[in-house]
Amino acid sequence: MTATTATPNHSQSASVPSRPPPRRICLICSKGTLDMAYPGLVLANAARMNGIGAMIFFTFWGLDLITKKKVDRLRVATVGNPSLPIPTWLGAIPGVAAFVTRQMKRGMAKLDIPTIPEFLEMLEAGSCEMYACKMAMDMLKLTPADLVPQVTGVLTAMEFMDKSEGAQIIFI
């Protein structure tokens, strides 16, 4: 009897060292406060600086980070933020959020930490893909013209599944 079906040569394929696929991370930024804006952008930037692929998906209040009118006006949450060393009733008083935000920005400038708009520019220079969530944009009545120019595009949840394939996903 002659063999008619080719048997895959397992021993050969096993001896060829297979290279792991290049690492990629995908960050989902869902919060719009100044303190929650930084983690995603810092991590995406650290990834790119180390030659690791990075993409960010901005959804819900995370869209504030890439909305022209909001990106420069992000604030620290002074209400409902138990980590802040001030009582909640004080945080609710007009002007307090602005004051705390100013203090935090000053502290960051002292440490030479880039501002949010600067981070977006750095990420664009490093070819980090930045996408806005279609559903959240519809909900907040935003159009692509409302977004900063560094944004790569707008994605639906289904499209996000394709774009994030193989990436390590981090939700913030």
Partner: peptide, 27 residues
């Protein structure tokens, strides 16, 4: 810091990524 590197060399960050495809920190 990366900002210092760009400022002192006068090279835009985009170009630094082109020069060192594995990123400024690694490459």
């Amino acid at each position: 810091s990366i900002r210092m590197l760009c400022k002192q060399t006068g090279l835009p960050l985009k170009q630094i990524y082109q020069l060192f495809p594995s990123g400024p920190a690694k490459g």
